[in-house]
């Protein structure tokens, strides 16, 4: 237990460093940019004297270290500032957009784990056969596909040609009007399920399929590769050979001994992939018009809306470090051989 605590403390200290470095970096970037936050705050065509006044109001005329100190102070008290373009508090907006992104990410990860573990196991069991080559080829194609392009192709195929899936958005507009979903978790599918709102659930689920599959492509590749290679590694370990000598059936060996031991590295890389999804959903959210954090950030970038960019960057870093920490702890439970 002490071991865990020490490990967690160490990681959290690193997180503090990361956050401090990141906040400093984003802050400096924000000041280097040849754009005037005061002007952005005011809208498309502010007058010079308005800009001067707002600059003073926002404290932009103070020395940089003072500005940074003030920024940190606000940050520590949970104030991420106000968006320059929507004039909404950043933290509240993030809270608003996060569930949509998480719903997409979790679905994508579930797909990736299901398909990846299956393909990886299949590949490993038939090493160096046509099945293996096909499995590996699918995996590598998965990590080589430009997500933004895959999304476009899927849209053409399933919306335009086949006409069986919606183009984008989270739910059908008419459905959301007639069968409004009560927000409980912010996950539309879950909320509609919990409230027994079947029409809305159906619509939300159909809308989820394409973006989730697009987002899953990369992770499918990662999971398949890791499952395969760690299974093959484990296959050479003594306890597997021993189990074989004992006369256990191959299926039992694979299921009981190998897969369990191979899960560690697979989960680690899946965790990494999941953590980076939060910041990697830009393309997919843009293409499928998914109202999540990615869309929010993309809009902020186009208007150089610094409070938002900084807020999301910091949040992304926290998410990344925390997910990795959780994955490491989880793995040490699954496979006690791994020490953290």
């Amino acid at each position: 237990m002490i071991r865990y605590l020490r490990f967690i403390t160490k990681r959290l200290i690193l997180l503090l460093f990361v956050l401090f470095g990141l906040s400093l970096m984003t802050f400096l970037l924000a000041r280097v940019v040849p754009s005037d936050p005061a002007a952005t705050y005011l809208g498309p065509r502010p007058q010079p004297e308005q800009v001067e006044r707002i600059r003073a109001q926002m404290g932009l005329d103070r020395p940089l270290p003072v500005q940074y100190a003030l920024y940190l102070r606000d940050l520590l008290s949970g104030d991420f500032g106000t968006s320059l373009s929507t004039h909404q508090p950043v933290l509240a907006s993030i809270r608003e957009y996060l569930p949509a992104s998480l719903e997409l990410m979790i679905t994508a990860m579930a797909i990736a784990l299901a398909v990846g573990l299956f393909l990886g196991t299949l590949s490993a069991r038939h090493e160096n056969t046509l099945i293996d080559h096909t499995g590996r080829f699918i995996a590598i194609t998965g990590v080589s596909l430009p997500a933004f392009w895959l999304g476009l192709l899927l849209q053409i195929l399933f919306f335009r040609v086949l006409g069986i899936l919606p183009l984008g958005g989270r739910i059908d507009t008419m459905v959301s009007l007639i069968h409004p979903v009560k927000t409980i978790t912010g996950f539309l599918c879950l909320d509609s399920l919990l409230t027994g709102n079947w029409t809305a659930f159906r619509s939300a689920l159909l809308h989820l399929i394409l973006p989730a599959c697009t987002l899953a492509a990369y992770s499918i590749g990662i999971v398949t590769r890791m499952t395969r290679s760690s299974l093959l590694e484990v296959a050479q370990e003594e306890f597997v050979t021993a189990a074989r000598a004992e006369g256990f059936s191959e299926r039992r060996i694979a299921g009981k001994y190998m897969l369990k031991n191979a899960l560690g590295p697979t989960f680690t890389s899946a965790g990494l992939a999941f953590a980076s999804m939060l910041t990697g959903t830009f393309y997919i959210e843009a293409i499928f018009y998914w109202p999540g954090l990615g869309s929010y950030t993309a809009n902020a970038i186009l208007s150089i809306d610094y409070p938002v960019i900084m807020g999301v960057t910091l949040l992304g870093a926290v998410f990344y470090v925390v997910v990795n920490l959780l994955v490491d702890i989880l793995i040490s439970f699954i496979d006690p051989r791994i020490r953290i």
Binding site: V33, P34, S35, D36, A39, T40, L302, S303, I304
Partner: peptide
């Protein structure tokens, strides 16, 4: 360049 940056320039 993004509009806000272009305007500064």
């Amino acid at each position: 360049i993004l509009w806000t940056a272009q305007w500064e320039m």
